[in-house]
Design a protein around this nucleic acid. Sequence first.
DNA 1: TCACTTGTATTAATTCAATAATACAAGTCG
DNA 2: CGACTTGTATTATTGAATTAATACAAGTGA
Lengths: 131, 131
Amino acid sequence: MQIHISANDGVPIYVQIVNQVKYQVASGRLKAGDELPPIRVLAERLIVNPNTVARAYRELESAGLVEKRRTAGTYVSDQGSPLARRERVRILTERVDALIAEARQMDIPKDDLLKLIENRHAVLKPASPEE
Amino acid sequence: MQIHISANDGVPIYVQIVNQVKYQVASGRLKAGDELPPIRVLAERLIVNPNTVARAYRELESAGLVEKRRTAGTYVSDQGSPLARRERVRILTERVDALIAEARQMDIPKDDLLKLIENRHAVLKPASPEE
DNA sequence: TCACTTGTATTAATTCAATAATACAAGTCG
DNA sequence: CGACTTGTATTATTGAATTAATACAAGTGA
């Protein structure tokens, strides 16, 4: 599993790890059952404190993307499972609610919002791995 | 203009001010041309440093919601003006882009996202002032 | 005009999230 | 069984964001 950290992004290291794992799962480069590197191993590779990787793994677990088997490692969970999908939808729902609230504050009607999403979706066509 | 600050929200004071002004403008309680309280007056009322209010006003200005007339006060700008609307759309576009990126990472198709927004919009029907 | 009220700028203190240092707990698997 | 490898917990450090203290600048409008 390849992960790249850029130091001065303003983006916290643990978030960078989370995002890259998420992307690799979504893109199929990481499949259900695949084992992630042990915390210490990845930490050493990234020249980062093990706690930082631990935090990333913790977030990934609570997002339903991976499962931790105590002393046996961390594994990509089955994304097709109802539980994993439900978790993803739950998280996305939070984001959507925030967006709707903001649109309302701005007095922008729902239909305009939907149109905006259509447009941006078209513009942002190729989901690029790098940010 | 009534503004309420809750101390231990985790939400920065200046953000609370910004949000409440935004909401009052969106809801029509503040209209184009209305004058906001002078920085010092609002600061005293909220028992907060004038700089904190100044920051809120600065953000509101750069969001296109208010206009500052140097020594003559701060006024709600005309939200119908193309400039104000363009600014609001610009800000909303950032949020939308982030949401789309997240949905993609989660491998949730556009149509599901749109459906989710429709649903949440219905659920969240009455935009409540309090959060 | 010119005192007063407005927003601005600069610097410091404080708070809090992110990261690190270090030690602990526990299941695996030879 | 028991050493090893795994994730966990606790505490400290650091750095950035928030808030505050204080002084400045400038247009208004009586």
